[in-house]
Design a protein around this nucleic acid. Structure first.
Lengths: 123, 123
DNA sequence: CTTATATTCAACCCACTGGTTGAATGAGAT
DNA sequence: ATCTCATTCAACCAGTGGGTTGAATATAAG
């Protein structure tokens, strides 16, 4: 069902973001463009082809654009869909801001413990 | 292959958000708690059981908590995972803010001005 | 032209997802 | 106890998703 290619932009974006490998790819891309092999080197456990597929998912969601330099097809981060997702989430902001008032400690944990390893935060 | 129940919180959250039906449920819940039948009434096209399953997905992601009032199990919005997702996305904020503000920044630089940048404000 | 590099295509596997229907459970109402 | 409403469980189906391997397609370099 769901007609296979008919998902809306938000669903594509959240769907693309729902995978740790892809989030790591985006984090890497946030530090500069990179080709498939270069990205694949970050994931010794999975094949180059799998990374290529991840890139295609990100591309379909509009989160990366691909160029062509020599025989490479470097991926470039596009943040527009992230902005859209962010805007969608922002609607719920007052809910968690409310709970932040009551649960300051929990907030500290959310922001401090944060995404392990692969996630952004470095540099 | 992801070991079935081993996804991290962020993946569960984004995964739960990647479905329009579930996003609609959350939107409805943002206006007040509701039971399954009440929520199912919003989706004449799909069965009550399907809605119940969606609720379970949202629950697994921590986006809703369930209570018990009479013979109903009202769903209640929990925004903490949204806050986490928001925090993750926030890392990429400067990318889209940059493109929105690129012209302004460029002008500021030409004038030798300091940290001009327009206040993010909204979001 | 041949070879090496970078990436994609194709076929396949299996787990998970979104949906269905039908039966089972839980808890008020009578 | 029985009936009824609200919800979940169970079995099933088709489609998708993440992964694999092997072959194919550019493009650069010798």
């Amino acid at each position: 069902m769901a007609a296979a290619g008919t998902s809306d932009a938000l669903s594509l974006t959240f769907g693309a973001l729902a995978d740790p490998t892809r989030r790591t790819i985006l984090a890497r891309l946030s530090e500069g463009d990179a080709g498939v092999s270069e990205l694949a080197a970050l994931f010794p456990a999975i094949s180059l082809q799998a990374v290529s597929k991840h890139l295609q998912v990100l591309e379909r969601a509009g989160l990366v654009a691909r160029g062509r330099i020599a025989r490479q097809r470097p991926a470039h981060l596009r943040a527009e869909p992230i902005a859209e997702a962010s805007a969608w989430l922002a609607y719920y902001r007052h809910f968690y801001e409310e709970s932040l008032d009551r649960l300051g400690e929990h907030l500290a944990r959310l922001q401090g413990a944060g995404p392990a390893g692969s996630e952004p935060g470095g540099s």
